[in-house]
């Protein structure tokens, strides 16, 4: 470590703090999978034995599969739509000199700084006044509002990360806007697009607040879990389901963040 400059000397106290921080961040979540393998209806120490029982039980309940299917459908639709819209918006924000641009960006990012419950009830009121009955479509609309800012925030640094002259060079070499997009712009922002698809899918898949107000008869997975919490005898299988969801979410998001940061020089998430 002697090659480090004076300012960068290691600090043992901070290092211990950082380790403790990460531990506290992760350990609580790990109790869910731990108890999902515990052979007891009650979540308490000491552990009483190892079992796959709750997972098997889960496998056999059609309501789980139905809500999984619902969440998948909403998630896929939301991730594709919000990533496409986010790509177009990020492209416009970084490449055009737009009057009122800052206000527009702030408007699109607004959902990040407004409590979700406000969106949920507002949309609920609008839909009921219009006579639209609640369904997976209304959940999708709600999730789009939540996910679009994240898609834009993921894609913006990508567009900012490569020079405008790349696209100009393509135009100069004879390609019109359409071909320039597919031959230069898209390959260069592809990691951002993949990251955005995975992130928005995960957010939608896990989203509860909007879904709570906007779900009709077809429950999404988090809604299903919420209703199951009322029945103590189902608690262990909820733990099993939660473990699976956590595992898949962690994997998806890890890949998304990793890919999303590839090749970006500045390690910066533009959410602030």
């Amino acid at each position: 470590m002697s090659e480090l400059s004076y300012i960068k000397r290691p600090n043992r106290g901070l290092k211990i703090y950082a380790a403790a921080f990460l531990t506290v961040l992760y350990v609580p979540i790990l109790f869910i999978p731990l108890f999902s393998f515990n052979d007891s209806l009650y979540v308490k120490f000491p552990l009483s034995g190892f079992t796959f029982q709750w997972y098997i039980e889960l496998w056999e309940r059609s309501a789980v599969w139905d809500s999984l299917g619902n969440s998948m459908r909403v998630g896929v639709a939301v991730s594709i739509i919000s990533t496409i819209l986010g790509t177009l918006a990020a492209r416009a924000i970084t490449r055009s000199r737009l009057p009122g641009q800052n206000a527009i960006v702030a408007f699109v990012m607004l959902p990040l700084v407004i409590p979700g419950i406000i969106f949920g009830v507002s949309l609920l009121i609008l839909l009921s006044r219009l006579g639209v009955s609640l369904s997976l479509y209304t959940v999708t609309l709600g999730h789009l509002v939540v996910c679009l800012p994240f898609a834009v925030a993921t894609l913006l640094p990508r567009f900012e990360g490569f020079d405008k002259s790349m696209e100009e060079a393509s135009a100069d070499l004879g390609e019109n806007g359409w071909f320039t997009f597919w031959r230069v712009t898209f390959p260069l922002v592809l990691p951002g697009v993949i990251a955005s698809l995975l992130l928005t899918f995960t957010i939608s898949f896990d989203e509860f607040i909007m879904a709570f107000f906007l779900t009709g008869t077809d429950a999404t997975l988090p809604m299903f879990i919420w209703t199951q919490l009322r029945f103590p005898q189902n608690f262990p299988s909820v733990l099993a389901l939660a473990s699976i969801i956590l595992l898949v979410s962690f994997l998806l998001v890890f890949v998304a963040l990793w890919v999303g940061r590839l090749g970006l020089i500045e390690p910066e998430e533009s959410q602030s």
Partner: peptide
Amino acid sequence: VPPFERPVNMVFQNYAIFPH
């Protein structure tokens, strides 16, 4: 005439070599 139809080509200041 848009850039992509002009009989001129350019060497950019930063060269704009496509990184991919």
